[in-house]
Write a protein that binds this DNA or RNA. Structure first.
Lengths: 209, 209
DNA sequence: CGAGTGATTGACTTAGATCAATGACCGTGG
DNA sequence: CCACGGTCATTGATCTAAGTCAATCACTCG
């Protein structure tokens, strides 16, 4: 799941690599580099070892929709395992290391090893749930409520702090807001004591309802 | 995929039922009936044999976000196969017949039969791609462009006609617009000769760009 | 040290949400 | 069989929040 909630990558232990079952190549990527582009033939699936990769779609009119950011432990291009092409653009936004898996290798492994297949299904399911949450969020019209929804979804239960995946501008894109609107909304929320802004983080202050 | 495009259900032949591998129960549902609710324990996965089922989430503030409508051949609750609860509400909006699968039965089948597992992964992947398309659409600010995106995504390449899954009001909810805004947008598009409205359908008229 | 980008705030515009009203339709029960 | 209650479909008027344009300051990376 690309939801910035570190806990997700928790069970990456179930994932293939660690069991050394698949031949995976590691590669280093620099900021700005394109991992793959929308429409391109898909031959591999990637796992983020470190860094940050931005996923975005471009529609026919040229508008760009940010799907999210993949962080450590996330996989990219899962859906393209069963599709001949990639459906979005993946661009590196923070120096990254990735692991590369050949589609054919993975598929063969899944056919042979039910455990691996199931682990992958779990990953797919989580991505679905994450996308649903995103969809729900985008349906909220108020910028403030949208930010609230994001914070609620990404604050771990105990720490009331959300680590921003990248710049505030990136977050704006992810929330489907203009950066100006987001800056203003954050300012207002801070002024109202609803949040506190730290360096690259946001802390939720007790809901004063 | 719940995208109303009939072609999706095309490969339901790959699905379990037809091979008679799983014990599936069929049940009839009437309009208004709730198949399952958000947060409820998930024990089953459902397949729509006929009818229409509306999927929607309710967030903490009570706002409802429509995730889509499941039609013939679609499965519901796939993501909950690996989650203890359902993540949305499923309400019948057109008299339906569904097939019910026990989660445990399916999981056992996947462990035993790689083909079934793979068929299911394909389903999950398609749902992901569908959700991404939805997300992309919700990111479009202009109501008209959003409608265009929807029509483009749901018109089969040859027939330039889109069958509306339910009422126009339902469609508005699915597009994240108020029904008034949608009515107006459709009127405008018709006035401009961009579309033609039939009974429960919309036909795309050649793009006059 | 200078260029490029992020962060922030202001002023203005606009598209879509809201509130409101009316006619068409549909199933239902007396 | 028809009157009635409900919901959909449609259109008008108004309001507002978010988009757009624009300017400034801060920061970081060669």
């Amino acid at each position: 799941m690309m939801g910035h909630t570190g806990r997700i990558s928790m069970d990456s232990k179930n994932w293939l690599v660690t069991s050394g079952l698949c031949s995976a190549i590691e590669r280093k990527l620099v900021v700005g580099q394109t991992l793959f582009s929308q429409g391109q033939q898909s031959a591999c699936l990637f796992e983020v070892v470190s860094g940050r990769i931005r996923l975005a779609c471009v529609d026919s009119e040229g508008r760009e929709a940010v799907l999210g950011f993949a962080l450590e432990g996330d996989t990219i291009g899962e859906a393209s395992l069963f599709s001949p092409i990639y459906h979005c653009n993946a661009v590196v936004t923070a120096h990254a290391v990735i692991r590369i898996y050949q589609k054919s290798t993975l598929l063969a492994e899944f056919a042979r090893n039910p455990k691996a297949a199931q682990a992958f299904m779990v990953r797919l399911s989580r991505r679905i749930i994450d996308l649903r949450a995103r969809l729900e969020r985008q349906g909220i019209h108020s910028a403030r409520d949208r930010v609230r929804h994001y914070l609620a979804a990404n604050a771990s239960m105990h720490q009331r702090t959300v680590v921003l995946p990248g710049t505030v501008k990136d977050l704006a894109a992810e929330l489907g807001l203009t950066h100006e609107a987001l800056y203003r909304t954050l300012s207002d929320m801070e002024a109202d004591g609803e949040i506190a802004r730290l360096k690259g983080k946001i802390r939720l202050e007790g809901s004063p309802v």
